[in-house]
Design a protein around this nucleic acid. Structure first.
Length: 553
RNA sequence: GCGCCAGUAGCUCAGGUGGACAGAGCAGCGGCCUUCUAAGCCGCGGGUCAGGGGUUCGAGUCCCUUCUGGCGCACCA
């Protein structure tokens, strides 16, 4: 549509020029936008306002000159001058009829424009270290990452979902030691928990499991690795269980230990050192941040000789780049921002082009219940786990709420609202629209009405302005999806769905708009086709979010 | 002190590449079910878009600055 309008304008401006009514030529890209207010038509151009300056005439006069030279094709109904000099276009009903038929015929898939061209996209998300149950913060990460992956996959990209975890550092040792202490306690022996040890009850359960399997055999001189392995296995089982509840799975798991063992981490250190980017200070080895334009130097290898999180992360990103993805998306929390900046700077310094890498940095999640924030402390195990949250509000609500905010805004998760099975809960509001539409089709079947396989056969001329308005909204969905993909902003989908569901509910509630009308088969079929397109849109949109679209509620 | 993010209605938040009167949900008040699902709809009230400069025909949107909040500032990940 936009291209059509742009070409009409280009031709009109050329004619106006030829007739001497306009001196300036059309600018290269003619910007066409969809007005927020449908009273302003289906497409609007600010071309006259943009030309006003060079032309030295009032915008409305220029608009009039262009308007006088416009020749409209049959699919465009009218062009008008409005406001300070906008040129507004309204499409003919036939245009919307055709679009509607396409949306109805293609099923849910109509919402996802095929813009990927098979390009390879990697989404690395969640990437929680296996040291404890997932928190609600992890939930936001997991759902954003998974939904991005769904969006890219649906729009014709080849997607890899990847989970990266750190199993090479001291956290793993601490985890194993924490389990060992609890194990000894279970045997009635005194043992001292390390200062930063993991306190959660789940550690004790893992210890009990070991006791059940091995008795007291691990009490003395056992390989500490046994405790680490048992803990990691048990915790990953929990993590996978939580992911499964949310409908999330991964294609690839990558870990830090592999990068360390096969020398890739050492290679990064060697390469940085070669370029004079490693500084020795206080017994540790630092990345020369200031040379790279960073605010500060950053530790690469601790004085104990162990690499920090950052060094394997650089190696990991080199590995990702080498794997040849067209786009590499990192999803992580705001507390990792400095780390990420350092990794990118190091990659550049080592001669790698970080252009394919894009980071989604989400802000923190707080939980509210009874109007009060729930305090979250990770180490003390006073947080609400992701599992508890899912059990309380359900996977659909959890997913929707995690996405119902721009990622760089804080997310205040209102548990009272989330657990309400009521209209004010936006998830149910959207799902309810789908259930109502499904019931319309059940009713249609009872009335002996069915849409023919060939949507083209249906006469849509009975549709009125209110229905064309609904069609316009439904047909605009693919553009919203394309924008969400281009800007990595999945939150646009739930917001759009809420709008679409709202328009449908308003339409549906008017008695005059009964879709099934026994006395008027022609009208009923036309409205059923509209209903089919709406249902496709809502189901397709919810599917992109990983949320169910129930037929009955 | 430095870096990143945010500041829009009582509350929680939307506001693609600057555009036409600033929107939604919740909360509050008042209405609507003999007819395809009332988990719905209709109406009412509510805003100096944190403050101040600047760019522009036009700024919630871009630039500068001040204030407030969140996160980080390194041998935790």
């Amino acid at each position: 549509m936009k291209e059509l309008i742009a070409s009409i304008l280009r031709a009109a401006i050329a004619r106006a020029q030829a007739e001497g009514k306009l001196s300036a030529a059309a600018p290269a890209p003619i910007v066409i936008e969809a007005p927020k207010d449908s009273a302003h038509g289906d497409a609007a151009s600010n071309i006259a306002l943009a030309l006003a300056r060079g032309e030295g005439k009032p915008p409305r006069a220029i608009a009039a000159a262009i308007h006088g030279a416009i020749e409209l094709p049959p699919r465009v109904l009218e062009a008008t001058i409005a406001g300070p000099g906008f040129l507004n276009f309204r499409m003919a009903p036939e245009y919307w009829h055709d679009e509607l038929k396409r949306a109805a015929a293609r099923g849910q898939a109509y919402v996802s424009p095929q813009i990927g061209g098979g390009r390879r996209v990697q989404v690395e998300f969640l990437s929680a270290n296996p040291t404890g149950p997932l928190t609600v913060g992890h939930g936001r990460n997991a759902v954003i990452g998974d939904t991005l992956a769904r969006l890219f996959a649906a729009t014709g990209h080849q997607v890899t979902r990847e989970y990266y975890f750190n199993d090479g550092g001291r956290q793993m040792k601490l985890l194993g030691e924490s389990v060992r202490v609890r194990y000894l306690e279970e045997l009635g022996r005194a043992a001292a928990m390390p200062e930063d040890g993991y306190q959660g009850e789940y550690i004790r359960e893992i210890a009990r499991g070991l006791q059940a399997r091995h008795g007291a055999a691990l009490a003395d001189g056992a390989d500490p690795e046994i405790f680490v392995k048992a803990a990691v296995a048990a915790i990953f089982a929990e993590i996978n269980q939580s992911c499964k509840k949310l409908g999330i799975s991964f294609d690839v798991h990558t870990n830090e230990l592999d990068l360390m063992r096969d020398g890739r981490v050492a290679a990064v250190m060697a390469a940085l050192r070669e370029r004079g980017l490693v500084i020795e200070r206080d017994g540790a080895q630092w990345l020369a941040g200031e040379k790279l334009g960073l605010p500060k130097d950053q530790v690469l290898v601790r004085s104990t000789g162990e690499p920090t999180y950052r060094t394997p992360d650089i190696a990991y990103h080199i590995d990702k780049l080498k794997r040849g993805f067209d786009l590499i998306i990192d999803v992580f929390g705001a507390d990792h921002i400095a780390e990420h900046v350092g990794v990118i700077a190091a990659l550049k310094a080592l001669g790698h082009d970080p252009a394919p890498i894009r980071a989604i940095i989400y802000q923190f999640v707080t939980l509210t219940r009874g109007g009060e924030k729930i305090k979250m402390s990770t180490r003390k195990a006073t947080y609400v786990t992701l599992d508890e949250l899912i059990d309380e509000v359900g996977a659909d609500v959890a997913r929707f709420f995690f996405l119902f905010r721009k990622h760089d805004s804080h997310l205040d998760f209102d548990l009272d609202l989330a657990r309400r099975q009521a209209p004010e809960n936006p998830v149910f509001y959207v799902q309810y629209a789908h259930a109502r539409l499904a019931s319309v089709f059940r009713e249609a079947e009872r009335a002996g009405l069915a849409l023919p396989d060939e949507a083209g056969a249906i006469d849509l001329t009975p549709l009125g302005p209110e229905e064309i308005e609904l069609a316009r909204r439904a047909v605009g969905f693919p553009e919203v999806v394309a924008g969400a993909v281009a800007d990595l902003e999945p939150h646009r989908i739930p917001f759009y769905l809420l709008d679409l569901a709202g328009e449908f509910h308003r339409y549906y509630n008017k008695p005059a708009n009964r879709i099934i009308n026994p006395d008027d088969r022609r009208l009923s079929l036309a409205r059923l086709l509209l209903a089919r397109a709406l249902m496709n849109g809502i189901a397709g949109g919810l599917d992109l979010l990983g949320v169910n679209a129930p037929d009955r509620m």
